[in-house]
Amino acid sequence: AVDGVRSANRPAAARRTAAGGTIRRLAAPHPRRFTGRATVLFAVLLALALAYTYPVRVYLDQQVDIERMEASQAAQREEIAELSAQAAKWQDPEYIKIKARERFYMVAPGETPVIVLNDADGAARDANGGRPPAAPKAPVPWYDTLWSSVRAANGEAADQ
């Protein structure tokens, strides 16, 4: 009876070992693919990834905007530098004289101005020996071109 009391207090595996039997499993336990903790961890990581996609996209768009604005500022700085150089030129009296001669055909006292005119009609008249230039041929209307192609197609079909 003492052994019976003692065996009742022991775990089942210890009782079987004490009884002289070996512990054998008939089938191996099937490990679960995902434990509950792994599933929760995966869900948390997926939620974090989804939560960060929009801010990352906004960040990348802002970086592109910043680069475009910096390029625009660089172009504006170059234009400002060019305009400043032109403004500095206009402070020079010699430059003003040169521009006045070019734009308004001004000459200094004692100089003889020579103005070359670009007269395309006069040059064509001179080339034709004084005859008026020939009138340009009028373009053929589209329907005449279409009708002539129909006639040509019909003539080729009749020859074959």
Rank of each mutant, 00 (worst) to 15 (best):
A1Y: 14
A1K: 13
A1T: 14
V2Y: 05
V2M: 09
G4P: 03
V5N: 09
R6G: 06
R6M: 14
R6D: 11
S7G: 08
A8I: 03
A8V: 04
R10A: 01
R10P: 00
A12F: 04
A13I: 10
A13F: 07
R15W: 00
R16Y: 02
A19I: 03
A19S: 14
A19C: 09
A19H: 04
G21N: 11
R25T: 08
P29M: 05
R32D: 12
F34W: 15
F34S: 11
T35I: 04
T35M: 06
R37P: 00
R37Q: 14
A38G: 06
V40W: 02
L41K: 13
L41A: 15
F42P: 01
F42M: 10
F42Y: 11
A43T: 13
V44Q: 10
L45S: 08
A49P: 01
A49H: 07
L50G: 15
L50Y: 06
T53P: 00
V56I: 11
R57S: 03
Y59A: 07
D61Y: 00
D61V: 00
D61P: 00
Q63R: 15
D65M: 10
E67T: 07
R68T: 02
M69C: 05
E70Q: 10
A71P: 00
A71D: 12
S72I: 04
S72N: 12
Q73E: 12
A74T: 08
E78Y: 03
I80T: 15
A81D: 15
A81K: 08
E82M: 06
E82V: 10
L83V: 14
S84Q: 11
A85Q: 12
A85L: 09
A87W: 01
A88I: 01
A88G: 01
K89N: 11
W90I: 04
W90T: 05
W90M: 11
W90Y: 10
D92N: 14
P93Q: 06
Y95V: 10
Y95Q: 10
K97F: 04
K99H: 03
A100E: 11
E102Y: 05
Y105A: 03
Y105H: 05
Y105W: 02
V107R: 07
E111L: 01
E111W: 03
T112C: 00
V114Y: 00
I115N: 01
V116D: 09
L117T: 14
L117I: 15
L117K: 15
N118C: 02
N118Y: 04
D119M: 09
D119Q: 14
D121I: 08
D121H: 08
D121K: 14
R125A: 07
A127R: 15
G130Q: 06
P132I: 02
P133M: 12
A135M: 09
P136F: 01
P139S: 09
W142M: 05
Y143I: 03
D144E: 15
L146G: 02
L146V: 14
L146C: 06
V150Y: 13
V150K: 14
R151A: 11
R151S: 06
N154R: 12
G155D: 11
A157C: 05
A158N: 05
D159E: 15
Q160A: 08
